[in-house]
Amino acid sequence: MPCTGKVDVQHILRAFEKGADGVYAVGCMEGDCHFNSGNFRARKRVEQARKLLNTVGVGGERVEMFNLSSAEGPRFAEYAREMDRRIRDIGPSPIKLAMKKAA
């Protein structure tokens, strides 16, 4: 994606529908968006998705938004590890399990 501003609630939900265990969006530092407010939009949509995921029983903690500058490779890796740890702790998505069961 050219910018996290392109991320929509739909994209996040579809990923979970297809069996994703977790989704995280990594945007530029707040205030540094090339398109002014793209990363703020993304944050709002991640929050919306979190609410919906809570409501439908998937768990809102499976989705997260991070910010960093494009020069921060190690930080990106750190976020990736953090998210990976979190999802492993929570376990597989109930949607994935239900799909397997149905299949």
Partner: peptide
């Protein structure tokens, strides 16, 4: 867009509830 979000959320809800 809202149709997509609602449909997706409902599908997950019902799938999750068997």
């Amino acid at each position: 867009k809202e149709v997509g979000i609602l449909a997706s959320a409902l599908r997950m809800y019902f799938l999750n509830n068997g």
